[in-house]
Design a protein around this nucleic acid. Structure first.
Lengths: 203, 203
DNA sequence: TTAACTTTCAAACAGTTGTTTGAATTTGAC
DNA sequence: GTCAAATTCAAACAACTGTTTGAAAGTTAA
């Protein structure tokens, strides 16, 4: 079935596709862009992944589980260690997971976070199906932890704050800089995840 | 030059294109989708706007100036009225502008806010050029106001907080709901701008 | 009505899209 | 080295892309 060479080829396709999908979106990326960027034949994508959509799914699946496990590990670590954890610590745990992923280039770095940030606005059918089934438990755990840390807030308010927090965080980590859009000079250079975390936490 | 009928046609194209661009992105929307949705001939787009990119630019331009003037009006109103305004009031002014736009359907409602939210992740060349020249002054005014309201923070911190705030706000108003992505049930239904504002402000 | 336009329309343009094909090549186990 | 399976490849597929064309229809003012 899969020899060394096959693995290398499909991996090169995944790497190239991941970057291009994040940069130009699903519709904005062509098969020929992907395969020529990966240095493989045009037919290789259909050979290994069946279709363009199958490739996108594979791109997502490769990163989804490691990130989910990392995040769940962080929140479990916190909630089992003590009972009086603060909301700040919950947010910190969430950011730590994203940062750990970002630091490790062989995990795809922050590219996957960018993909998630993109999925906020792009209603990809694959993501619409896969995201809840991959991150449902994760989200529920963080919501429960937040609710435990902020007992005076209603569950509706908790949901909203989690929504706001993740919006700001993903955009920040993804480097989708408002300044770079609205101003000619960036004012803020957001490449270092540690800097982003330091700035986001007090906020 | 432009008679009543021509205006009606180009307007119908703008309306249809606006919705489709927001939903599927620039690359993900075809001319035939736009024209058939608008009920006009395929050639009408090139007749009125020159090209697909010209159409996108027109879609943006139609909403950009009214929104900018509304936002600038709100912040000027606040900063000239008194000298001891709070950060909360600055944020409130910003949200009020977005809400006023959202309430008025003939201003395009919240569709334009969605377009802005999309521009966070989609590096459209038109937006890359137009956004800073349209919203540079606006952004500088709000940053200055925030800095005045929070004198203990460095300008770097101010920039970051504005970045976080706008990220959360645009995503919230745009209805890009994290819950709808990560969970099977929404938990939060974010259609009413007033509700969003009420939830975002204490955060 | 005439005449100078603006606007609409169906048809076709060349180029790109994702996908398939079948033959060549490479691979790994015997 | 043999042979079957896995992989690569150039070429072609029909469908779709944005755009152009030139004639038809509609509009406006004299």
């Amino acid at each position: 079935m899969e020899t060394g060479k096959a693995l290398e080829t499909s991996q090169r396709i995944l790497d190239a596709a991941e970057v291009l999908f994040v940069e130009h979106g699903f519709a904005g990326t062509s098969m020929r862009q992907i395969t020529s960027s990966a240095g493989v034949n045009i037919a290789a994508v259909n050979y290994y992944f069946g279709s363009k959509e199958g490739l996108f799914q594979a791109v997502f699946e490769r990163r989804a589980e490691p990130f989910a496990q990392l995040s769940i590990g962080k929140i479990d670590e916190l909630t089992t260690a003590k009972n009086d954890y603060s909301a700040t610590e919950v947010v910190q745990a969430f950011m730590a997971a994203a940062m750990e992923l970002g630091r490790n280039p062989e995990n795809g770095g922050l590219v996957f976070v960018k993909l998630l940030a993109r999925s906020y606005v792009e209603p990809n059918p694959v993501l619409k199906e896969k995201l809840p089934q991959r991150y449902g438990d994760l989200t529920r755990k963080y919501l429960a932890a937040l609710s435990h840390a902020l007992p005076h807030l209603s569950s509706t308010e908790i949901n909203w704050r989690f929504h706001f927090m993740t919006s700001a965080m993903f955009n920040a980590f993804a480097g989708n800089n408002v300044m770079r859009l609205f101003m000619t000079q960036p004012l803020v250079n957001a490449r270092d995840p540690q800097v982003v975390a330091d700035m986001l936490l007090p906020f």
